[in-house]
Design a protein around this nucleic acid. Structure first.
Lengths: 229, 229
DNA sequence: TGACGTGGTGTCGATTCGACACTAAGGTTC
DNA sequence: GAACCTTAGTGTCGAATCGACACCACGTCA
């Protein structure tokens, strides 16, 4: 079962930078490689694109197969095509970044006999291939995009407190924000709905829960509205 | 001369959306296809990626071969991978957009026996493949990027008047700007240098020429400075 | 019941923003 | 050369936005 083509062509892969936020840090999901090249090294989840699937489908399939992750925010990042980025042969990689709700996606560890783990973005191990470059690009993109698109919510559970939301922005952007100004701004978007609920099981005054009004946002977006924080 | 692989793989192409600005409009460069599929239709310049070249190199090569265009601003746009986007077989296309100084790049017409022409972006003919989608995406990206990156200059000659620069922004963004406010803003960037020259051969008061201080910009950029209009 | 920890709220000065109209200069025409 | 045509070039002011900043509220726990 092999195929023959008139001209040589690169192999085509997808790789995913999966971001998650826990109590401490913004983290990236890595998989430990079992085989050469780079056996034992940590790498991004990914694999080769099949003929009958789109690139997005390939990315989602790899996330499912390698990390048990489904139904996440996924967006194409960049396509890397240096000639020697894979020592075996020419491989072009279409990369994606994904945002997952870590609280709901306690990742399946050691799936398929492969080891998977989360690493804080400023404490990454040495990565296989050019995956460090890819992670850098993903962080830059995430930082840029979080300012003018409502993707911060993808890192939180459906119901969240304003303090949690502020933490998302602070961890992603890498600097602290003023609480009152932050609350003013998110309130000004008009896209947070205040719930009749407060958080549970905390050893202090419980904070009000909010949820993101995605329906209204989609409407406004079509009318040219720009979300900005 | 053919090759055999263990598993099937998509063909990999690059396609370029080349923008140019003339006296009237923002335009896109198209090539008329000579062969099926879509023979006779207009399409983006592009072609297949060779094993020994990077994606950027492939894009530049195609621009050179198909339109005689060299040394332009070029940036990767998106990778399109719908399964049936090419009726012949699975082709994944890494797309780029380019900005050219139309005044200096009077495009080589009918090169390689191929017909090439500029079309105003809101008067495009029907395009081959999914190239309309690609052009749409390129316009969206250009509109977003021109606001916070100094790429407008790429559409103008080295020396330009402030009115010309304003026209670039107006044509790209699709709406008019206030002359005084615009001049205040560009002056505030501190990145335009006033030359001791005025434009020539105009039938009215000649405007002062300016040039973009790219060196200073590169320095500031590294320090985290954000260009904004 | 008091201490602790986080939740939640408003003001003010500085800055930025957008709206807005006239004179200057150079070439063309009669 | 006078009138005219066309584009160049320039400043103000009110509105909106921004960032800096501090205290009381509420629930838990000892």
């Amino acid at each position: 079962m092999s195929v023959t083509y008139r001209y040589p062509r690169p192999a085509l892969a997808v790789d995913c930078v999966v971001f998650g936020l826990d109590e401490e840090d913004l983290k990236v999901l890595l998989i430990r490689r079992g085989v050469d090249p780079f056996a034992g090294r940590w790498a991004l989840p990914g694999g080769f694109v099949r003929l009958e699937e789109t690139l997005d489908e390939a990315a989602r399939r790899e996330l499912r197969e390698e990390a048990g992750i489904e139904k996440v925010y996924l967006e194409q990042l960049y396509t890397f095509g240096a000639v020697d980025r894979d020592p075996r042969e020419r491989v072009v990689s279409v990369t994606y970044y994904a945002l997952v709700k870590l609280s709901e996606h306690r990742v399946r560890a050691a799936t398929d006999a492969r080891e998977a783990a989360w690493f804080a973005i400023d404490d990454l191990p040495k990565l296989a291939f050019d995956h460090e470059t890819i992670v850098d690009k993903a962080i830059t993109r995430l930082r840029g995009k979080v300012r003018y698109a409502p993707i911060g919510f993808e890192l939180l559970p459906k119901k969240f407190t304003l303090t949690q939301l502020q933490r998302v922005y602070e961890k992603v952007l890498g600097y602290e924000l003023d609480k009152r100004n932050f609350r003013k701004k998110v309130a000004a978007t008009g896209l947070l709905v205040e719930l009749d609920e407060v958080e549970q099981d905390v050893a202090h005054r419980a904070a009000r829960l909010y949820t993101f009004d995605e329906k209204t946002y989609r409407k406004l977006e079509k009318e040219g509205f720009l979300f900005e924080i």
